[in-house]
Design a protein around this nucleic acid. Sequence first.
DNA 1: GTCTATATGTTGATAGAC
DNA 2: GTCTATCAACATATAGAC
Lengths: 200, 200
Amino acid sequence: MPDGRGRPPRYSRDELLEKVVTVFNERGYEATSMEDLARATGLNKSSFYHHFNGKEELLGLGVGRALDALAAVLAEPAACSGPPARRLEHVVRRTAEVLVAELPFVTLLLRVRGNTEVEREALGRRRDLDARVADMVRAAADAGDIRPDIDPRLATRLLFGMVNSITEWYRPDLRPTAGPAVVDAVVTLAMHGLSTRSAQ
Amino acid sequence: MPDGRGRPPRYSRDELLEKVVTVFNERGYEATSMEDLARATGLNKSSFYHHFNGKEELLGLGVGRALDALAAVLAEPAACSGPPARRLEHVVRRTAEVLVAELPFVTLLLRVRGNTEVEREALGRRRDLDARVADMVRAAADAGDIRPDIDPRLATRLLFGMVNSITEWYRPDLRPTAGPAVVDAVVTLAMHGLSTRSAQ
DNA sequence: GTCTATATGTTGATAGAC
DNA sequence: GTCTATCAACATATAGAC
């Protein structure tokens, strides 16, 4: 673990941001000081301020990247046409893949609570995405492809509660090749559940 | 919303703690100052310190209550004997019920990251509970009652990722009677999934 | 038990030399 | 682009009067 003395090669702005977001996730955004971030990137605190305007800007950049990636999933052709249940399964799978691929950024996003303007805007964008998925669940229920006995909004929340939980425990540095297995398990459990004897 | 001027009737220690934990959840533990807590309870900051030794003690009391409630579920007779799949379903249902009943405390627990000694101890206790549930999932898989194609540890994490997501969106103040429906939906989705055509 | 006043440290952020 | 030095604001926590 580099502590800033064995001067790392010097980072690009994107690499800097990834490092920052990782520290945010480890310590929590509020508990992370600009001093912490500077040290983690091998820079002096003032040098660090030369690259970014401040802490809140870093948060905005981090959650923005996650939101862009998640929004891109809903813009994919397979998410926009076809039977609702197929579209839904596609979105579940691709969302899980995005979580794995952009793990630190999505992790940061999912922990945002709305304390500042930047956070509230992120929550707003996230709410918009959630609403579009909930519409998809509703359409699939109307088409009879998913169980009608659970309210679509409730089902959406539980479904993506499971998907999003990936950020709580998946550590790609410990299990770098486990991503596809995780994604498959999410899709299978979401659609068919845990039980082998699946009737109602 | 009382802001401390219309002096609330005066709280017991337990009521004080519940208020505190709610503020922690709204603002985030790190972002909450002792001043915030004092104001929320209608007390002066120094008066507040008369009731509690400090911020970290409050965190410990809050997560401790959540951990006690969750541990009690695993100690129930129905969680200790019978076919593994039945025991598992019981634990899923009762855990969901505890989340609903002790929502602010469990919410606080699930956001702990391990920055301080109190937090690390809480994470340790939580890990112990998770391991016992994972054993239950493994036993159910060995008995052929749940699908064998998903690693038991992975299944446990996704399963309780869904259950725990309740703390992310359930607001009993807005929908006070929705608790039982939420619990039923969790158990149904966990065991049987979203799809109506559930084969593999 | 409640308050005012204050000690002591840390934070985000800036000024300005090199 | 990097650093040293510094600031104003705010944090946790305590002393001690009433």
